[in-house]
Design a protein around this nucleic acid. Structure first.
Length: 424
RNA sequence: GGAGAGGUGGGUGAGUGGCUUAAACCAGCAGUUUGCUAAACUGUCGUACGGGUCAAACUGUACCGGGGGUUCGAAUCCCCCCCUCUCCGCCA
């Protein structure tokens, strides 16, 4: 969530930003936030004063008792009892106000960065880069959901039998190619200075709130109710939560973590004709990169992450384009997001394979992820960033479709040492 | 799953109702000493929300796993919950 102090000091910027993000009732909400804050401070001042007096009296009573002045002590006691109901009332009011304030703050999305383009939907996203050559496919070319049957490398029917729709079974060279991609992505991340993490795949409620999946996207996660644990929808959740309630030192920056995990998504209500094959799944594999950055450097870090992902796409020889998401299409918590899409030649459409975002302090405020500046007092919120590097199924789809030939599918050169074969 | 023990600052760990404003030690930071390192010594050393100030100094409140209660006063007593550890059982 946004920092209260930021809203107070930058009211106009916040309002402009929220409008860009198509957040309805921006003025109304911000005014309410500011007046609640006013009320909160006023109440706290009153309460603090009463508590200070009460603490004083209590100390005096202790002193009187010690000196054996019982009568005086009794008198003081009855006085103290009076301020009690008063303080109870005030502290109830304080927590009610704070609660309402927090609840309201949770409903306000992050403010977009100035570089975010205006717009209301996917059509308004800015194409930053388009690179690579779209392959020319033979007339016999098949979409990946046919190819996987032809070569018997991914089996949806089997997954259907074991689990249900959206849980494919990877077989033989399909499984090996998948494993090759994971290892390749991890090795590249390590080479780029990321620390490899193998996090838990089930997380508790606190972690769900920490990265913002709860309470809003409750229905999107698989929930093991017996133990009140959630299957992770992305490695972002466990990895970022490593830093929940953490105060870093300034020279701890940059913190770079990468992890491979399966990801589980219920994708409630989002199935349709356009999500055939590997395009959308309940379980899929992904390598995620996460950075915790100094606020002054987070946009450099974002560009660094973007370059890292481009590097992967280029080495995989996939045509790609990069979108700078417009205000209306930007996620709730992001300040700036690049979507990376690869060209899927047989489907003749772009597939999103990565999304890199700077959340600035939006996540860290909720996580209480701070750092101590070397100069000066106190703590400051760090910036968090993450991105997929990369999500496997659509990459796999694009590799299969783009590299198909009359006599098999060519494996990109960079993956061959990892696969142990050159062709499917 | 059964039984027991326990959750206190960055760490170790004291603290059974009021000289606790959380001792002491370690680590950290600053300084002194020093040819350098080490050691020693001195000082400093939590977080959040307020007040105060140009900024500080200073100052109020809350926080000893979480939530409630008893009391003038709770780390300490009571209730509920969560978690960790040990042993047993089960098990890759």
């Amino acid at each position: 969530m946004l920092q209260l102090i930021y809203i107070k000091d930058n009211k106009d910027t916040v309002l402009t930003g929220l409008k860009k993000k198509k957040f309805a009732r921006a003025e109304e909400t911000i005014e309410k936030v500011l007046s609640l804050d006013e009320e909160r401070r006023h109440t706290q001042q009153q309460l603090d004063k009463i508590l200070a007096e009460a603490n004083n009296t209590a100390r005096q009573i202790g002193q009187l008792m010690k000196e054996g002045k019982k009568e005086e002590a009794e008198k003081a006691k009855s006085e103290a009892a009076q301020s009690k109901s008063q303080s109870k009332e005030l502290s109830d009011k304080l927590s009610a106000t704070e609660e309402e304030l927090t609840r309201l703050l949770y409903t306000i999305p992050n403010v977009p960065h100035p570089r975010v383009p205006e717009g209301s939907g996917a059509d308004d996203n800015e194409v930053v880069v388009e690179a690579g050559e779209k392959p020319f496919l033979p007339a016999t070319a098949q979409p990946h959901w046919e190819l996987i049957k032809t070569y018997d490398i991914i089996d949806f029917e089997l997954g259907n039998k074991i689990s249900g729709a959206g849980f494919p079974v990877y077989k033989g060279k399909g499984a090996r190619l998948q494993r090759a991609l994971i290892n390749y992505f991890l090795d590249e991340a390590i080479a780029a200075g990321y620390t490899e993490i193998q996090p838990p795949l089930l997380v508790n409620e606190d972690s769900g709130y920490g990265t913002g999946q709860l309470p809003d996207k409750d229905g999107q996660m698989y929930h093991a109710t017996e133990d009140n644990l959630y299957l992770i929808p992305t490695a972002e959740v466990p990895i970022t939560n490593i830093f929940r309630d953490v105060i870093l030192k300034e020279d701890d920056f940059p913190v770079k973590c990468a992890g491979y995990t399966p990801c589980f998504r219920r994708e409630a209500g989002s199935w349709g004709a356009h999500v055939r094959g590997l395009n959308r799944l309940h379980q899929f594999d992904k390598v995620e990169i996460v950075q915790i950055a100094h606020p002054d450097r987070s946009y450099e870090v974002l560009e660094e992450m973007r370059r890292h992902i481009i590097g992967l796409l280029e080495k995989l020889e996939l045509p790609y384009r990069i979108l700078n998401l417009c205000g209306g299409d930007l996620g709730f918590t992001a300040a700036l997001t690049y979507d990376m899409e690869v060209w899927s030649a047989a489907q003749e459409r772009w597939l999103e394979v990565s999304s890199v975002s700077n959340f600035e302090t939006y996540q860290s405020n909720r996580l209480k992820l701070r750092y101590k500046p070397t100069e000066g007092k106190g703590t400051q919120l760090a910036h968090t960033l993450n991105g997929s590097a990369l999500a496997l199924p659509r990459i796999l789809a694009a590799i299969l479709e783009n590299n198909q030939t009359e006599d098999g599918i060519n494996i990109p050169k960079v993956l061959r040492p990892y696969c142990g074969f050159e062709k499917i």
